[in-house]
């Protein structure tokens, strides 16, 4: 496969995954900010800014954190490179460039997503409904994933699409967990704490998994264990690394030795890791180290497979 094509496919799925995760993260923050016991809704809306590292960009344009502004910033704001609007625009651009490498149904799903988003943007978030919008983004991502799974050949195009998805997801899950853990550590309040962890689990679609796997009440350590080490949870760090370890060696040719090794090492650390060890290191430090490793892996994939120069 052409390196440039692989790169476009990889970024196509990264941007769609990023749009979905942004919607999930925001949905939760927004719901929490409306809870009666939340004394300062702005704290909840700060979380997405911290997770994505965009608080500086945001504060350069707004004097304070208002719920409405944060929602706009992450959804339809053309000037925020990480907004859902821009993620879906870039996904569509990447898709356009590899129009011939994806199936007609995949392209139709991306393209109609973009056309609907442009239409929807005219009416604005208020008219469409905030919750409805997040649902829509998630559904469009599900639809694309379904179209991909259901129609594309299991070749390198499929693999680079999956690699993009799991690099992005590993990064996003680690960030969501890191920030929530820090907020959780800052102040107590049992009810608020429950809702925060409940919200986090919901945001990554893992609430039902938690209930099924643990009988005990929701607590920070168990949530961390689930989202880092959970073998059965599709958004856990371990699951992401497992998929990368399946996809990378399946790519045709002998390229990418370093990428394969980095992924294998990281997967082994998660596969044979345990929570006590992680807590010994400290969750924040552990996740910071994990993010650095994911970044290194992403850079290596770029150098070994995707770089055209």
């Amino acid at each position: 496969m052409l390196s440039r094509t692989a790169s476009d496919l990889y970024w196509l799925s990264r941007f769609i995954e990023r749009a979905e995760n942004t919607a999930r993260m925001l949905d939760v923050a927004w719901n929490l900010s409306m809870m009666s016991f939340v004394t300062n809704p702005r704290d909840e809306m700060m979380a997405p800014l911290m997770i994505t590292g965009t608080n500086e960009l945001f504060m350069s344009r707004h004097d304070q954190v208002r719920v409405r502004d944060v929602l706009h910033f992450f959804t339809l704001d053309e000037d925020n490179p990480g907004s859902i609007f821009n993620c879906l625009r870039l996904a569509r651009e990447n898709g356009h460039a590899v129009r011939g490498k994806i199936t007609g149904e995949m392209w139709e799903s991306i393209n109609s997503t973009w056309l609907e988003l442009r239409e929807l943007r005219r009416g604005g978030l208020d008219q469409f409904g905030v919750s409805a919008f997040f649902e829509w983004v998630k559904n469009r991502s599900h639809l694309f994933r379904g179209a991909t799974y259901g129609t594309i050949m299991r070749n390198d195009a499929f693999r680079f699409l999956r690699i993009g998805t799991f690099i992005e997801r590993a990064d996003n899950t680690a960030r969501i967990l890191d920030v929530k853990y820090q907020i959780g550590a800052a102040d107590g309040g049992e009810t608020l704490d429950f809702y925060r962890w409940h919200a986090l689990l919901t945001s990554v679609g893992a609430y039902e998994s938690y209930r099924e796997l643990y009988s005990e009440a929701i607590n920070a350590d168990r949530v961390a264990e689930l989202l880092i080490l959970g073998a059965e949870v599709p958004r856990s760090l371990r699951s992401c690394m497992k998929m990368l370890c399946e996809m990378l060696p399946a790519i045709e040719g002998e390229a990418g030795q370093t990428a394969k090794r980095l992924a294998a090492v990281q997967f082994a650390r998660l596969q044979y890791g345990d929570l006590e060890h992680i807590l010994e290191i400290g969750l924040h430090d552990y996740l910071t180290d994990f993010l650095r490793r994911v970044n290194e892996l992403a850079d290596t994939i770029r150098e070994e497979y995707l770089e055209v120069v």
Binding site: L2, G253, Y305
Partner: peptide, 23 residues
Amino acid sequence: IELVEGADLFVKDAFVYMRTTAG
């Protein structure tokens, strides 16, 4: 067939090659 742009191709030893994920 592959849809290539100029940057995907290069010339070496009197032949044209394309850059792929497998070399």
